[in-house]
């Protein structure tokens, strides 16, 4: 009997495919998310929109908060650790969370290195803006990738940019000759064996969800049609006027992403989405997606 194998770690992400993972800050929100049909919840202290508003250092959530959320639901619970903060990750693993998100939404703890994720039994998901970043994270042991988008904005434009960059990177590798792959690995800043694997299979070796700025059922369906395996919705649900019906509508839009009639039906009467910040108004220094190396 073997635990913490690559197949077991990547396997849980496979089970989440076609689903919605929702940011929650309390046990009550976690129950609302589960009731709406979320496949997992992300336990955190403040949603990205509030982190953005309040400023200061954003850290791992209080263990009591995480445990309350774990106790409240039967679906998997994820929690965020700061980039490079392997002790926060050790603590979260000891709490029995099902996945750790080494996340740029929190304030990075290391400006040069990410966590050695091979050292853990619990699987990790990491953000990426393009193929090279994704393969560096997978090389460090990430069992799932999410495109970063720009968390806490309610603007889907960055999520689209990162998803398109990922797809383009994969397609490009698939067109190269074998003798070109080492140069491609150098340019991508990615491990050669993973570059070779993507070139051969035409896909990432792990599941890739979209994240960062999704606020509506149509946003979720857009990301699914662009080829992601599922979606994270952060501030978009619990910063909207009426979270429960919106959460449910986003779940349904993620399953029926190719059916415009169903999308029209579930998009009706949801009340105000989160207010949001357009990317054109966001100062360069306020862009969370730039964190990660």
């Amino acid at each position: 009997m073997e635990q913490g194998t690559v197949r077991v770690k990547r396997g849980l992400a496979e089970m989440l495919k076609g689903g919605v993972i929702m940011d929650v800050t309390t046990a009550d929100q976690a129950r609302i998310a589960e009731e709406a049909g979320a496949v997992a919840v992300m336990a955190l202290e403040r949603v990205p929109a509030d982190i953005r508003r309040d400023g200061g250092v954003a850290r791992m959530a209080d263990p009591t908060r995480v445990e309350e959320i774990v106790a409240a639901v039967s679906i998997p619970v994820m929690a965020k650790a700061r980039i490079g903060h392997f002790v926060e990750a050790q603590i979260l693993q000891s709490l029995g969370v099902d996945y750790i998100d080494e996340s740029e939404v929190l304030t990075p703890a290391d400006e040069a290195h990410h966590i050695d994720k091979w050292a853990f039994t619990v699987p990790f998901v990491c953000g990426a803006r393009d193929l090279g970043e994704a393969l560096r994270r997978i090389g460090e042991g990430a069992a799932m990738i999410r495109t970063k988008g720009e968390a806490g904005t309610g603007d889907v434009v960055e999520a689209v940019r990162h998803m398109r960059a990922m797809t383009e990177g994969i397609r490009r590798l698939a067109t190269l000759g074998h003798e070109q792959l080492m140069a491609a690995a150098r340019d991508l800043g990615a491990p050669y064996d993973l570059v070779e694997e993507v070139a051969r299979t035409g896909k990432l070796p792990v599941v890739n969800f979209a994240a960062g700025g999704l606020a509506t059922p149509a946003d979720a369906a857009l990301m699914m049609q662009l080829g992601c395996d599922g979606v994270f919705v952060g501030s978009g649900i619990f910063k909207s006027a009426d979270p429960a019906p919106r959460a449910r509508a986003i779940v349904e839009a993620t399953t029926y992403f190719n059916d415009p009639q169903i999308l029209a039906k579930v998009s009706r009467g949801l009340g105000e989405p989160m207010v949001g910040i357009g990317m054109d108004r966001l100062a360069d220094g306020d862009r969370l997606a730039k964190r990660g190396w």
Binding site: M1, E2, G11, S74, G96, D98, V122
Partner: peptide
């Protein structure tokens, strides 16, 4: 019994 073997860290192959 759902999640009978425990949380993800207890997941295994055999």
């Amino acid at each position: 019994r759902r999640n009978a073997f425990g949380s993800q860290v207890a997941s295994f192959e055999a």
